[in-house]
Design a protein around this nucleic acid. Sequence first.
DNA 1: TAACTAGCTTCTTATATAACAATGCATG
DNA 2: CATGCATTGTTATATAAGAAGCTAGTTA
Length: 182
Amino acid sequence: MVQIVNVVASGSLNVEQDLKAVAEELDDVVDYDPNKYPGAYFRFSDATSLITLYRTGKYIITGADSEGDASAIRARFLELLAERGILDSPDDDWFTVQNFVCTADLDRSLNLNALAIGLGLEWTEYEPEQFPGLIFRPPDAPCVALLFASGKIVLTGCPDIETAETTFEDVQSQIHSLLPAD
DNA sequence: TAACTAGCTTCTTATATAACAATGCATG
DNA sequence: CATGCATTGTTATATAAGAAGCTAGTTA
């Protein structure tokens, strides 16, 4: 079973925004420094996720821990903009989760050197002096898996949770046939 | 020289290593 | 009181995705 640790989603207000004015109006929740970065950061004190709003009206949500959490934060964001007169009518435009980052545990230790060869050198990158994890890009999945000697796994770039789960199951069965049990 | 493209910036999150800084505690 | 060792803490490394804007490099 995989656990979602981060969800990245994007959407659009479809209205160009005056970020300087928005930052002044919502001083307590917005961080905006155009010299550092063109986006304005929205943070709710009781939520972990971050919303970055751009001049064009497009925005991204990062740090949500489920798809529902991302939707809930988006709803609060639109409501806040509406009640402060920044957005006339929160119109429902496309809002999509772009990336699910998940963790999983194989409950066994891994020999990463053997695994790099077993999974296929063309699909793996393992340079322990640079990074302790083995990077695996499954040829038939749109996501990337980071495998660690402890048996912990990070799956990232997953367009949906089903992809994360099937990729985890695939990795698990490949390891079962490639490596001897502990 | 203008237009275009590519790459980097910021942020989030788990994972695990090394290298480093700073502090705590004990022994001489 | 000073030095040594241990522990804790921070930073770096790498991964994916979105966004806008800047710069560098290439091409017509």
